[in-house]
Amino acid sequence: MSLPDLIIRPRRLRSTPVIRRMVRETTLSPSDFIYPLFVDETIDAPVAVGSMPGVSRIPVSMVGDAVREVEALGIPGVILFGIPATKDAIGSSGWDANGIVQQAIRAAKAACPDMCVIADTCCCEYTDHGHCGVLHGQDVDNDATLANLQKEAVSYAEAGIDIIAPSGMMDGMIAAIRQALDEAGFTNVPIMSYAVKYASGYFGPFRDAADSTPAFGDRATYQMDPGNRREAIKEALLDAEEGADFLMVKPALAYMDIIREVKDATLLPMAVYNVSGEYAMVKAAAEKGWIDEKRVVLETMLSFKRAGADLILSYHALDVARWLNDS
């Protein structure tokens, strides 16, 4: 059979590694990543998180070394999660001037002044019931929680934080935190909003890491239903109107369509959180030899970028940076 006189051959641009690199539409860099750190006030040596191979809780004395390692790999930021020594019904250790995250902020900035230090801003790590706010009965009181988030955000700013990252999915949280920061003189501290956070089964291992499993029920009354797409756009637009400087979609892997739609609907930088369950699945399959871990991780991270992510929060970040730096 003869070929037509004119035939388009896309394979020409795939013929060599050099040409493939030249025409690649989406690329990865260590500067695309933010690395999560779990800092535990109750320990003096690292404690491995069993459901997240390669991830440990660390004492505040190790924060400087951890941040220096992150910076040396070319990763520009870390996000801090704190495990306090004491918890109560309202999460008051979250705005203690000498709380665990406040200590970690100071240690991180002392070790690496140019590192972008971000504080997850929520109540679940500090409440004795594990929910993300003040309870009335078994319901989270939205507006009472906002007042506490304001105090927490200002306390982090006073400790030297670079970015506040509210994750509790309270209505009006961005406007409330922006107001509190501005009134306290922190007008230049940006807010990275967990604008679209689903009530997801992918969060399971994180609750082991952060000691934040709810004592009863779940978080479905404030985190989003996984079936909702239009609501995600609504939440993102509301947070943008309230003064968010970045938007985030969490989880990432099962919500690629949402990442793209939020990205297209707004003009703000887009972060995605490659969450603990996504990480744990890859690690488990790799340990069994079922997948090529490096190949799968890099493909997944590239897919987040292709979907619209500007920044990727990931427990894989250190490995990814090493692979990219060695390539």
Rank of each mutant, 00 (worst) to 15 (best):
R21A: 14
A284S: 15
H316C: 06
S200R: 01
F246W: 15
A199E: 02
V70H: 02
V67W: 00
D264W: 00
D120K: 05
A89D: 15
V70R: 00
T26F: 07
S327G: 09
I259D: 01
R295D: 14
Q179Y: 06
A199S: 09
P166S: 07
E261T: 05
D310Y: 08
S51N: 04
V134Y: 13
V63Y: 12
T26C: 00
G277C: 11
L318K: 15
D239L: 03
R24W: 00
G137Q: 02
A111P: 07
M52Y: 07
R260F: 00
D239K: 06
I7D: 12
M173I: 05
C116A: 09
D326W: 07
I118H: 06
E287I: 01
A199V: 00
V249C: 12
S303D: 12
S167T: 14
E69W: 11
L80C: 04
F33N: 03
A66L: 06
K305E: 01
L268A: 01
N228Q: 14
L73Q: 06
S155K: 02
C112W: 06
M270C: 00
G277V: 08
V47G: 00
R21Q: 14
T266W: 13
R219I: 03
G99I: 08
M248A: 05
V189F: 02
D239T: 07
A72V: 00
R219S: 04
D239C: 08
A48E: 12
P226M: 06
